[in-house]
């Protein structure tokens, strides 16, 4: 264990632990858009930037992305130094110009007092900030169905060859974790459509509500040893069943005791 100072407070952490994880543990609010606990950090959004220094640095400070900066003993961190706030403001200013329609971006920017961008707005800008949480999560799930395509201005997230991705099972991990809700999908009539691919959903045998896609249920039952039947019941019916069982056990215990 080592000690670092965050905003004046000395805290204990593991050597080499990423600063952001210590900051979060201390419940300090640092904005992030590209961070997700489940996947490797990528340093794409730059919002988690903090000021770091050490006594022996002679007053010199560095500005680093805390999600990618390993803690070292004696480090002094300031998460809201004036310059850090300025940096975040200018980053948000750029986001606002490029993704004018994103509510999440608007909200974040407003939190930092940026109400309108000082730059030229990209009129047809979409809500994808290229944080790559979706592609990293898709890799992590073991599907790698989507990835970034192209580079520079034209870079985007897309399935290969711009066709419905063969490797996608419709798990929705990408869409559900997109910080700006950019990834769209449709559900209805027992079907799901995402990335232009259509899936049939498994329905709850008790109440008829849909659970997950057939492909995803099959994948989980084959790779994770969860019986396929598990997905043929929705969360609510699982819970009902569980509470019925608990009731039976309670009754039985009462009978045994009496």
């Amino acid at each position: 264990m080592i000690h670092i100072t965050i905003n004046g407070k000395v805290v204990e952490c593991k050597d080499g632990e990423m600063l952001l994880s210590v900051i979060r543990r201390e419940r300090i609010d640092v904005p992030t858009l590209c961070h997700h606990e489940a996947v490797e950090p990528s340093g794409a959004c730059r919002l988690c930037t903090v000021e770091v220094t050490k006594p022996e640095w002679d007053g010199w400070c560095d500005y680093v992305t805390s999600c990618l900066y390993p803690a070292k003993d004696g480090l002094i961190v300031n998460t809201h130094a004036p310059k850090v706030n300025e940096l975040r403001k200018s980053i948000l200013d750029m986001y606002l110009a490029r993704h004018p329609k994103s509510l999440k971006i608007k909200q974040l920017a407003a939190d930092y007092g940026v109400l309108a961008t000082s730059l030229e707005t990209v009129v047809d800008g979409n809500n994808c900030i290229l944080c790559t949480i979706c592609t990293r999560i898709c890799d992590h799930m073991g599907f790698s169905a989507i990835s970034t395509v192209g580079r520079g201005h034209g870079k985007e997230v897309a399935p290969p060859l711009d066709m419905a991705p063969a490797d996608c099972v419709g798990c929705l991990a990408c869409a559900k974790n997109c910080p700006t809700d950019y990834i769209e999908y449709e559900t209805g009539n027992g079907r799901l459509k995402i990335w232009n691919k259509e899936f049939e959903m498994v329905a709850c045998t008790v109440c008829g509500k849909t659970t997950v896609t057939k492909e995803f249920a099959e994948h989980l039952s084959q790779q994770r040893d969860i019986p396929f039947e598990y997905f043929e019941k929705c969360d609510e019916c699982h819970r009902k069943e569980l509470s019925a069982t608990m009731g039976k056990i309670a009754n039985w215990e009462r009978e045994v005791r009496s």
């Binding site: 169905a145 990835s147 290969p160 063969a166």
Partner: peptide, 12 residues
Amino acid sequence: VPLSKVFSVSTF
């Protein structure tokens, strides 16, 4: 290599 990665590299 996943097809998505091959495509990513070929468009990069």
